[in-house]
Amino acid sequence: MNLKSVKFLVQVLVGALLLSMMVFYASKVLERKDAYNKYEAFFREENDFDVLFFGSSNMQLMVNPLQLWNEYGITSYNFGNTSERLPVTYWTIKNALEYATPKVVVIEISQFGQTEKYKDMYSVHLAWDRFPLSPTKIKAVYDILSPSDPRYELLFNLILYHDRWKELTEQDFSRSYSKERGYSANYEYIVYERPEYKFRIDNSATETEGAMYLERTVKELQEKGIQVMFVHSPEVNSEEKQARINAVTLLAQKYNIPFIDFTVMDDSVIDYSTDLSDTDHVNIKGATKLTHYLGEYLINNYDLISHAGESSYADWNSSYEKFKAASEGIVLKKSE
């Protein structure tokens, strides 16, 4: 190769590098910050996680990892995400496991029986935008979205977010993020009465795509030696929906998986008159009770040890203190 060719090659490489850097920077500035804000702490964590929580918004509002840390010294992350269907959860778990090896994975199954693969693009973007481009992410996109869907936008989100140049604020240039480890607290309540349900299983729910994906999830996690647990958040459900949720017991029995259904269990953990923010979600008061319940269950049934006192976990302590200071003393607001 002569000098001219080397010079030319260097020029092209420098140009390509410059372009890539600018595209990368523009993507970071222009992207919607909700996914970054929610998941950045997961990627910044130096230690591995003991437990990962997955599911829809029911999960997001139900388990507070900072409380689990404070009470039991276990590290966890809440991947619960708005309207997330079980096929998306399957791929969220697969992507998350590329960056962590938890001992236990807890899946909230209130979406069991839903027929579609995903509810809307916003939900999928929120779930996956923060995951870097990888073969797993590409597989996820091509599996969940149909050819007519905007697949490229999930792989290169600048395509979707480039028009945000009009609405940029100072926050878009800041790299600060939530340290609540995925949990989202709600401070409102609605008064409900706990419904009674006749136990019935709707077998058709086991034939939905979501059910098949949940089974795949269980199989693959067990193959990796990761313990799986199902939970169902307390809800004010219709008989029909609860009959679909009850079908999860068949899968739990088949794979010998514990299943805690807070909606129908004998002793209600939460108070339906104060602890729900709507029919599907608990507020911070309900979340505190459920997190404590789950913490007891996890520590008593799995081989989890407390990391409290270890210096490399100092950030967990400071994060908890900040959360406590910010949430303590807030009076719940009654909602209609």
């Binding site: 140009g15 523009a26 936008e153 395509i159 028009d163």
Partner: peptide, 26 residues
């Protein structure tokens, strides 16, 4: 000079990427 050529090319590409009308939002 090559640095100017590359700056122009990259500048135009970035302008199109940011200010162009494309993607599912349109």
């Amino acid at each position: 000079p090559w640095i100017f050529r590359y700056a122009i090319t990259v500048g135009v590409i970035m302008t199109i990427l940011i200010f162009g009308i494309y993607g599912s939002s349109y």
